[in-house]
Design a protein around this nucleic acid. Sequence first.
DNA 1: GACTACTGAATGAACGCCCACTCAGTCAGG
DNA 2: CCTGACTGAGTGGGCGTTCATTCAGTAGTC
Lengths: 204, 204
Amino acid sequence: MRSARTLNPERPVVADKREAILRAAIRVFAHNGYFNSKVADIASEAGVADGTVYLYFKSKEEILHSIFDRSMEEAIAAGKQLLEQTSDPREKLRRIAHLHLERLGADRDLAVVFQVELRGSTKFMEEFSAAGFAEYLKLIRSTFEAGQQAGVFRKELNGKVVAKILFGALDEMATNWILSQRRYKLAPMADQVLDIFLNGVNAE
Amino acid sequence: MRSARTLNPERPVVADKREAILRAAIRVFAHNGYFNSKVADIASEAGVADGTVYLYFKSKEEILHSIFDRSMEEAIAAGKQLLEQTSDPREKLRRIAHLHLERLGADRDLAVVFQVELRGSTKFMEEFSAAGFAEYLKLIRSTFEAGQQAGVFRKELNGKVVAKILFGALDEMATNWILSQRRYKLAPMADQVLDIFLNGVNAE
DNA sequence: GACTACTGAATGAACGCCCACTCAGTCAGG
DNA sequence: CCTGACTGAGTGGGCGTTCATTCAGTAGTC
């Protein structure tokens, strides 16, 4: 169990442990819920001792924070990069939506943490939404408003509201996918959402 | 503190207490989150002793369940009644959406419990969604499908997906309204959602 | 290459707080 | 004086967090 270092003395063990704990926490939180998860469960899932968790994280709460921060950062970076690859506003929104559902669909446990556990407290919601969700909504909004300028989308619509509608629809797809017993692909749902959405916001 | 009974001996105390505890629980859950709320807090907010709570509810969890069950029941009953008042599918959806946001907008604490606290655990979500949300989604879906039959909505759309989209969009309006500092009216947002939604699903 | 001294990552038993729930007792009404 | 609604101090278990201890690995010395 502690042989990793022995076998690979050159590898930075520290990063491995932190990573292992984070992954374990995602799994444990997803299965038991944040408040029902014990730090001891995370530790044993990660294959470390209880105390070791506290060498890498200040508290149980900080683990949840770290999960959110890292994933959100990655997602937004990926999103922004994606937006540079095309200039058509419709296509931009299509890609954002796809990315959104693809990322969640690729890791069910992470999706559960995002869709369910992170929502389970106004305190978290306020902190988190200030940090990450808001920025994500802004990304959608500014893309939409650029489309309005270009005459592609109806000018009288409120960008903030439109962004919430698209986000809300995608979010609901993700939540439903998690709760559903039937296993289907999540990402393709993006097309059905966009079909209706774009139809609804298109100019003319 | 215990004078309520003394002052109004004729009032049916039993129903009052249960109601008071439920109301108190909504307030306390909304402010602290379900897991951070102590039963003692609920009791004192309701003006009863800790033990009294257990004369009316088996456990803390049952309180949350009761809040959900009662509100959901009321909402669905109100929704069904509303649907009988018109036959135009578009108008039906409009009224459902309005009712949805009106009810949540009328009681911020209850809205917080619904939008945030009830989502905070897969366990709850699975139990609850089986019970109530699913039925609500079905209501939207069947209304939409009736509209497809009538030729009002695009026939190629999947009713289940369409229902999720509308619900998701409304749900996001509600969640955002709760988290927002700025106080605006929630119900009117329904019109903006429906504008885009109906435009997106209309036939032709 | 062997011996010694040192380091700090990792451990996990133990601590102490917290809080859901209980129950022996109180008291008002009849 | 009996009934039963109500009380609230007490209890028991659970769990986040700590910290004294261990020991693999490293560096210095001869």
